[in-house]
Amino acid sequence: MATDVGELIRVQALTRRYGSRTILDRLDLEIAPGEFVALLGQSGSGKSTLLRAMAGLDGDVAGDGSVEVPGQVSVVFQDARLLPWQRVLDNVVLGLDGAAERGRESLSEVGLAGRERAWPNELSGGEQQRVALARSLVREPRLLLADEPFGALDALTRLKMHALLRRLVEQHRPAVLLVTHDVDEAIALADRVLVLDHGRIAAEQRLDAGRDTTEIRAALLRALGVTGE
């Protein structure tokens, strides 16, 4: 048993259906405190459905099963989802009282010190996503759920964001579930990579130190149904 049982994230026999289509089929998943898990899967395999279930955002979707998550969960969406009529700092501390100072710190952590008073519209896509990251982290989440947060960014910005995310996660140590369609991104960031297929976790690769990543990469691509490499 893990030391801090209370923080273990556990999804058991999770089923989610849209109409007659079963998207998640008695899925089981555990994430240890502070563990970084990446979730791969083909388009339409149900990655977002799983993430939304864990974030408690799918009250209107049919299904059953249990989801145990810590009290403080933050979500980063594919779009930065900043309120356009709130300045950057107000977006970061949205719903938190008297947290302006922490918000400022959080913004400087993501390299946006000095942009507190800007409107979201005045920021680039990468900067907006950094604000979204600051908004998530200022809440000191025990679980960070991220649904393709870098999907809309160019390759160079993505790499920079990877480094930033890794640094932030090391500092704040939340457990992370990162949905991505990029195998290399998953390998670069995660402790463990999962592949979702037919409503279940179909494959799993641990990135223990010293393991050959080309081998892991090949195994993950095979699990994703991508042959020939």
Partner: peptide
């Protein structure tokens, strides 16, 4: 509606 969803995830009263 995405903003409403955001409000729910950050637990706005």
């Amino acid at each position: 509606s995405r903003y409403v969803e955001l409000a729910e995830t950050v637990g706005l009263r």
